[in-house]
């Protein structure tokens, strides 16, 4: 199954550039200039902004127990996963799942890049969500 065929898990969350690379969408409040992620629905108030695709790990943790469902929609079988806040240049700090990195290698300041992750819902359906992964990994 091609990953790019899975639809994104939500509207106004991410888009893809001409090269097919994912980009996160935020909104800039036209009144205050404040950046808000994800992009709010109110297009009159919020200007659509594409966030930087690279950043550094600002903080992190490991989710070691299966979250309660709802709201968690992942499969019943559970494996711990990494979560972090990623500082995207000088723009905003975004919370994200972290993939392609050993838990022991996580450290504040780690260079990261945006990628996508197929997320399997309890129903077995696959949706595309965003994640960050170490910059050096392919």
């Amino acid at each position: 199954m091609s990953l790019t065929l899975a639809p994104p898990i939500a509207d106004r969350l991410m888009d893809f550039d001409a090269a097919g690379a994912p980009v996160l969408l935020a909104g800039r409040d036209r009144l205050t200039g404040r950046l808000v992620f994800p992009l709010p629905a109110d297009a009159d108030r919020f200007e659509r902004v594409e966030l930087p695709k690279h950043g550094r790990l600002w903080s992190w943790t490991i989710q070691r127990f299966r979250p309660k469902s709802p709201p968690y929609a992942g499969p019943e079988a559970f494996a711990p996963y990494a979560v972090g806040y990623v500082a995207l240049d000088e723009a905003i700090i975004v919370e994200s799942r972290l993939i392609g990195v050993a838990f022991g290698d996580l450290r504040i300041g780690l260079p990261l890049r945006l990628t996508t992750e197929p997320f399997t819902l309890e129903s077995g359906e696959t949706r595309l969500t965003f994640a960050f992964t170490p910059k050096e990994s392919a």
Binding site: I9, A10, L13, P38, Q63, P67, P70, P71, Y72, A73, G74, Y81, V83, E95, S96, R97, F119, L121, T129
Partner: peptide, 9 residues
């Protein structure tokens, strides 16, 4: 948004 809860954040 729902995805925030669905993806375990």
């Amino acid at each position: 948004p729902e995805w925030y809860g669905e993806t375990g954040l």
